[in-house]
C-alpha cells in the first residue's frame, strides 16, 4: 500500500472488483489503452494462474490476462 492508500493490482486477490487509479509506466499505460483499459475503469480480478502469474482481468465482457511484473505497476482501489 502506498501513500494514497492504493493497492498494487498484483496484491489484490481473486474475485475482487477494483478501480484503476494509476498506471505507473507510460508505455504500459498506452498499451492498456490500446486494449481499451483506462485509468478510472472498473475491472474484476477473475482468476490468478497457479504460480501467481498471469492475472486475469474481466473488463466490459473481455477477459485479459497480464503478467505479474506488469500488474505490479498498476495501482488500484477496492470497490
Amino acid at each position: 500500500m502506498n501513500n494514497f492508500g492504493y493497492l498494487k493490482l498484483s496484491n489484490v486477490g481473486e474475485g475482487k472488483k477494483v478501480l484503476i487509479k494509476d498506471i505507473k509506466d507510460v508505455q504500459l499505460k498506452t498499451f492498456f489503452a490500446q486494449l481499451g483499459i483506462f485509468v478510472g475503469d472498473e475491472v474484476y480480478v477473475s482468476k490468478i494462474a497457479p504460480f501467481g502469474s498471469p492475472i486475469a482481468l474481466d473488463t466490459a465482457g473481455v477477459e485479459i490476462a497480464v503478467r505479474k511484473d506488469d500488474a505490479d505497476r498498476i495501482e488500484v482501489e477496492l470497490v
Binding site: L28, F31, P54, A56, A65, V66
Partner: peptide, 10 residues
C-alpha cells in the same frame, strides 16, 4: 512484444 497479455475468450 513490449508487453504480454493473453485474451481468454469465452
Amino acid at each position: 512484444k513490449s508487453f504480454f497479455f493473453i485474451e481468454l475468450p469465452s
